[in-house]
Write a protein that binds this DNA or RNA. Structure first.
Lengths: 334, 334
DNA sequence: TTTACCGATGTTATCGCTACCGATATCGCA
DNA sequence: TGCGATATCGGTAGCGATAACATCGGTAAA
């Protein structure tokens, strides 16, 4: 294999035209079985890998779906992704992931990069984008689905939950159980719009019943169990009579629980805990922590379905806005 | 914006040739600042997104590095990825992730797909590939780096650790602390070659001192805290006098620890625990669990550096084989 | 037997951009 | 004033594949 095999090499070796070789390898119709077999045989024998760059330029179609998420570390997006993948598997489309790092500028750059590859669809987490990004998304000639969040104005298609409502609902549950001295611990706070909305909903849910937060910690860094533990320790030191803490993420509430375990505090008697996301790390703990399921997988699945739907329909797909209902899991920590 | 803006539209509006517009937008030399500014202005105003498919076909270069990993759920690969990203950020290259799902066939398909986009480099986890995959990787006209593992024969470049040795080392540590009735719990066992190697190394390490495993559980499913907890419970039921368990992953050892917490078993007095990877979930637990750091980030960084190095050097880069030394963290659970 | 038609294949014309190289403008300097 | 060296810019020719249409035996229907 001195130099790269091209389609024309395969064609020549198989004794057919480039066109026929192309059709054979793509599984297109109008090729006799004998010819197809011969072409495939030659391609395999020589390790021919088609050049999809050329193919896509020619066919004006790219079998990729861009997926832009803030992070892969947070345990939350892999599951959205797997929902997307499972649905796309029924089609020739493949997901490609880009990471925006909870930064609008970074998101803009990543989206520009992805759109420059002319994907068949774009799925992006969140409704908040820079102006330039919004413009790009509106002009993109592929279906765009904003996911995870439903509080706001989607550009076109949208699948998510109301984080505002999720926060409010958790406030109601916590108040209903008689807790009154309540703290909130959040991470990535200025940048994570959804965490911010849960916070806002939570505070307003408390306010509806005349309760204000007793303590509050907005931490700029990433969610981590160790961070949750540390911030919980600090908050309980500041407010020894706190009776409940609501965290922006299960990762953090697990950290809080670890603090309680280490200090011999009993949950929920000494302090009640609640998180968000219903992450798999909650399963297997000695105590089931309260959480809200964020519908990650269904969101991914629906988003992918919308992309497929848009691809199949000749005309532009009418805007789809799907608001899923997250389910609170009270567990044993409230 | 009725139809897609093309470079020629930008050029026309800017009153320059396509060529000049192309140079201006790419930041290529030989363009006056005034012209460049005007072209950029027009492009921005009209939301022009260059078509990288056409650009790459023409320039015969793609600024993407394919990264193929078994899974994103396992908590281990995101960190390799972030090592890769951080290094690539100094260059115009961008990582693109593909998921092989711990399946050789799937891996083959994913790699074929990625290579069909003619990336500037390919980083793949593991040394074990199907024959067809090996052939593709050898013929690929881009640098290929196999990462994570160093036990075996790399195709060309390789950055990893010896999992065999990691298993052996942990066996030595465990034996040195006097444990004799030892169990092993592993997941993804037939497919995860690296876990398998740690197991083999562990068993041989024990054998060197005349010890055999007291109990063994190879679980086919994914690692999860809940799974670790359940399998630990079952193993301890089978072997009540087990004094130590080595897990294929920290995720599982945390599950084991959760079982101990729930049952009131003290670690390491009642049973000692050790895992692998040094995952962030270990941080913040009431007890620090023994583990081996898998050097995930440095591996990602080095792999990316090799890709950059190969890109810069005119001639073919001589094979690089880098074996990092994982560090055991004994914690408090042994 | 003739004609319409169909499956299998080949020919031509892009797809949107950039490498390559030639053309032009500008400027310093003798 | 005239020359070559620079700085800018443009025309042409692909990159490697596929869409669309043309071709061409051969078979079934008339």
């Amino acid at each position: 294999m001195i130099k790269k095999m091209l389609l024309k090499d395969v064609a020549r070796l198989a004794g057919v035209s480039e066109m026929t070789a192309s059709r054979a390898l793509r599984g297109a119709p109008d090729v006799s079985n004998a010819t197809r077999a011969k072409v495939e045989e030659i391609a395999r024998a020589h390790g021919y890998v088609p050049n999809r760059i050329a193919g896509s330029l020619s066919s004006q179609s790219v079998n990729l779906v861009a997926v832009v998420v803030p992070s892969l570390n947070s345990f939350v997006f892999p599951e959205v992704l797997s929902g997307i993948s499972s649905v796309l598997k029924q089609s020739p489309l493949k997901p490609v992931v880009g990471i925006s790092g909870y930064e609008m500028d970074e998101e803009e750059e990543v989206i520009r990069e992805m759109l420059s590859w002319r994907p068949s669809g774009l799925i992006v987490a969140g409704l908040e984008h820079s102006e330039a990004t919004q413009k790009m998304l509106l002009q993109a000639d592929c279906p765009v689905v904003e996911v995870m969040d439903a509080d706001g104005t989607p550009l076109r298609h949208c699948v998510g939950i109301s984080h505002l409502q999720a926060g409010r609902d958790m406030a109601a549950q916590i108040l209903a159980r008689g807790y009154r001295r309540i703290g909130f611990i959040g991470t990535k706070m200025p940048q994570d719009f959804r965490a911010r909305k849960r916070y806002d909903g939570f505070v307003s849910g408390l306010a509806e019943q005349g309760i204000a937060l007793t303590d509050l910690k907005h931490y700029a860094g990433d969610s981590a169990i160790a961070t949750g533990r540390l911030l919980t320790e600090q908050m309980l030191a500041r407010q020894p009579d706190l009776d409940c803490i609501y965290y922006s993420s299960d990762v953090m509430s697990v950290g809080g629980y670890m603090h309680c375990l280490a200090e011999g505090l009993s949950v929920p008697q000494d302090v009640a805990l609640a998180g968000f996301n219903n992450l798999p790390i909650l399963e297997g703990l000695p105590l089931q922590l309260a959480t809200t399921d964020a519908c990650r997988r269904p969101i991914g699945e629906r988003a992918a379905e919308i992309v497929l739907q848009a691809r199949d329909s000749a005309a532009d797909l009418a805007p789809i806005r799907e608001i899923l209902s997250p389910r609170i899991n009270l567990g044993q920590s409230l």
